[in-house]
Simulated assay, not measured.
Amino acid sequence: MKETVYLKDVLEEMRTPNKEGRAIKFDIAVRSFNKFSKEGGKFYRYENAKLVMNEKGNDPDSIYALQNFKPSEKREIVKKNPNHFSNKTRNIKLENGNIKKINIKYIIEFNGKHVIP
């Protein structure tokens, strides 16, 4: 039988930075959100993903640096507030650099442990 972990503990572990102030890497299995049927859709497994969050440090590839990058001083980019808390979503950055939005209600596994809502 697989070990289990509660969803609130998963969310806490995801947003806890390591001792250098950077996001931790984790493996996660999640179903996509089907907005038409309001249920889970396709199954996805992501390895070495990181939660998109402000990271400390001067690394030009850090999430903090990428979020604050302005391509031109003349143009100002207005970003929409994602309302992650009310929408029950989180953004994760994959190993290849892509950013995916996941619905926390459909997290199935976290670091090899079964997630209990």
Results as ranks from 00 to 15, higher is better:
M14D: 03
K113C: 02
I107C: 03
E12D: 01
D59H: 00
E76C: 05
K56L: 00
H84K: 02
V5N: 02
F69S: 09
K101A: 13
N91M: 06
G41W: 13
L7F: 05
D9I: 04
I116L: 10
G21N: 01
S32C: 05
E20T: 09
P117H: 15
S72E: 09
N83Q: 14
P60A: 00
R31K: 08
E13Q: 10
G40K: 14
F85N: 05
I102H: 07
K79Y: 14
H84G: 00
I104T: 15
K74D: 09
E13H: 03
F69H: 11
N18R: 02
K105T: 06
E20S: 09
F110R: 07
K38L: 12
Y64K: 11
V52T: 06
F69M: 10
P82R: 03
K113W: 02
G57V: 00
F85P: 00
F36H: 06
I63M: 13
K19R: 14
N68A: 10
K113R: 13
H114Y: 07
S86H: 13
V10P: 05
M1S: 09
H114S: 02
R31N: 13
N68V: 01
K19C: 06
K79D: 11
N18T: 05
E13L: 10
K8P: 02
L7I: 11
S72A: 10
R31Y: 12
P117Y: 14
K101Y: 09
A65V: 05
K74G: 02
R22P: 01
I116T: 10
M1E: 03
M1F: 14
Y44S: 12
Y44T: 09
E73M: 11
K19E: 15
K42I: 12
E55V: 01
V115E: 02
E109W: 09
M14F: 02
G21R: 04
D61Q: 05
G112Q: 04
F85W: 07
N18F: 04
K2H: 10
G41F: 12
I102G: 06
E109D: 07
K38E: 15
F26Q: 09
K38S: 11
E13R: 01
P17L: 05
V52M: 10
R90A: 08
A29W: 06
Y44G: 06
E3S: 06
K105Y: 04
E95D: 15
Y6I: 07
V52C: 01
E76H: 14
K35Y: 04
R45H: 13
L51S: 08
F26M: 10
V115M: 01
L11N: 04
K113E: 01
M14W: 03
K42G: 08
T89K: 06
K105N: 13
E109P: 03
D27R: 07
N111Y: 07
K100R: 15
S86F: 14
N111T: 10
I107T: 03
N54G: 00
K88L: 13
R15K: 01
K25L: 05
I107Y: 03
S37P: 00
D9F: 08
